[in-house]
Computed example of a mutant assay.
Amino acid sequence: MLPDLTQYLWIAWLVLALIFVIVELLTLEFTFLMLAGGTLIGGLGANLLSAPWWLQVGAAAAVSALLLFTIRPLLLRVLHRNSAHIPTNVDALAGIGARVLVPFVDGAGSVKLDNGETWTARLADGQPSAEVGARLVVRAVRGATVEVGAPVPDPKENTHG
């Protein structure tokens, strides 16, 4: 005679919760942690109360949805509360100083940024031509070209005479 497999359903709930926790450790977004909580609280909890298998699945789904839409946003808000946006890569170039390397012809030239990188540059609209060695500031990055303008006073130059 075949055994009634529903009496071992509690093992399936524990294994499923363990799988969700392992996946959560890989993703770190609290999604699978909420599913693990729903599995344990709803599925295993209903199993321990001797509910039928379909009620266990429904309870697990309901508790998981409740956790996903209530607790998870709160956890994410607390986690990201003190994290300020720090620009990196190309986003960090806006506002950095530059020195003209190649004279601008028709608004296009070459500059060396303060971080040591050499970029093709275009003068910002309305910006007069800049001489070699002049200090400018990066206003924006347009593809592989930086838009420069507004000369920046050189801190090494002493104008106090």
Results as ranks from 00 to 15, higher is better:
residue 43 G to Y: 07
residue 42 G to D: 10
residue 125 D to T: 10
residue 68 L to V: 12
residue 129 S to C: 05
residue 106 D to R: 13
residue 54 W to P: 03
residue 93 L to H: 00
residue 159 T to Q: 11
residue 132 V to R: 10
residue 124 A to V: 07
residue 128 P to I: 02
residue 33 L to K: 01
residue 140 A to E: 12
residue 78 V to G: 06
residue 53 W to T: 11
residue 146 V to K: 02
residue 126 G to C: 09
residue 72 R to F: 07
residue 120 T to F: 08
residue 57 V to W: 09
residue 154 D to G: 04
residue 74 L to S: 13
residue 48 L to M: 13
residue 135 R to V: 13
residue 63 V to K: 03
residue 95 G to E: 05
residue 159 T to F: 09
residue 158 N to H: 12
residue 95 G to F: 04
residue 92 A to H: 09
residue 100 V to C: 00
residue 53 W to A: 11
residue 159 T to H: 14
residue 71 I to P: 03
residue 66 L to K: 01
residue 73 P to R: 01
residue 12 A to V: 14
residue 87 P to V: 10
residue 112 K to Y: 03
residue 46 A to N: 06
residue 45 G to I: 06
residue 20 F to M: 04
residue 31 T to I: 15
residue 56 Q to W: 01
residue 97 G to M: 06
residue 4 D to V: 09
residue 139 R to N: 12
residue 135 R to Y: 09
residue 142 R to N: 09
residue 24 E to I: 07
residue 33 L to W: 02
residue 83 S to K: 12
residue 95 G to T: 07
residue 4 D to R: 04
residue 30 F to D: 05
residue 55 L to N: 00
residue 76 L to I: 15
residue 32 F to M: 14
residue 132 V to A: 13
residue 108 A to Y: 10
residue 103 P to N: 09
residue 3 P to S: 15
residue 14 L to E: 07
residue 158 N to T: 06
residue 37 G to L: 13
residue 145 T to F: 02
residue 139 R to D: 12
residue 60 A to H: 00
residue 30 F to T: 14
residue 75 L to T: 10
residue 134 A to P: 04
residue 86 I to Q: 14
residue 13 W to N: 03
residue 42 G to V: 10
residue 25 L to C: 05
residue 23 V to E: 08
residue 28 L to P: 04
residue 150 A to T: 11
residue 95 G to A: 04
residue 37 G to P: 10
residue 89 N to A: 14
residue 119 W to M: 01
residue 93 L to Y: 03
residue 155 P to S: 11
residue 15 V to S: 05
residue 77 R to A: 15
residue 115 N to W: 01
residue 37 G to W: 07
residue 126 G to S: 01
residue 122 R to G: 12
residue 129 S to V: 14
residue 83 S to W: 04
residue 48 L to I: 09
residue 106 D to W: 07
residue 20 F to P: 02
residue 100 V to I: 13
residue 40 L to G: 08
residue 161 G to V: 14
residue 63 V to S: 05
residue 26 L to P: 02
residue 89 N to C: 05
residue 16 L to D: 07
residue 159 T to N: 00
residue 94 A to F: 00
residue 39 T to V: 10
residue 145 T to S: 07
residue 157 E to M: 09
residue 50 S to M: 07
residue 122 R to M: 13
residue 52 P to R: 04
residue 106 D to N: 13
residue 147 E to M: 11
residue 140 A to K: 10
residue 110 S to I: 10
residue 10 W to L: 04
residue 88 T to F: 08
residue 25 L to Y: 03
residue 107 G to V: 09
residue 86 I to Y: 06
residue 72 R to V: 15
residue 39 T to G: 15
residue 93 L to E: 03
residue 145 T to N: 12
residue 50 S to I: 00
residue 8 Y to I: 05
residue 74 L to M: 14
residue 96 I to R: 15
residue 157 E to C: 00
residue 82 N to F: 08
residue 86 I to P: 00
residue 69 F to D: 00
residue 161 G to C: 00
residue 83 S to R: 15
residue 66 L to H: 02
residue 41 I to A: 13
residue 45 G to C: 08
residue 82 N to I: 02
residue 33 L to S: 08
residue 118 T to V: 14
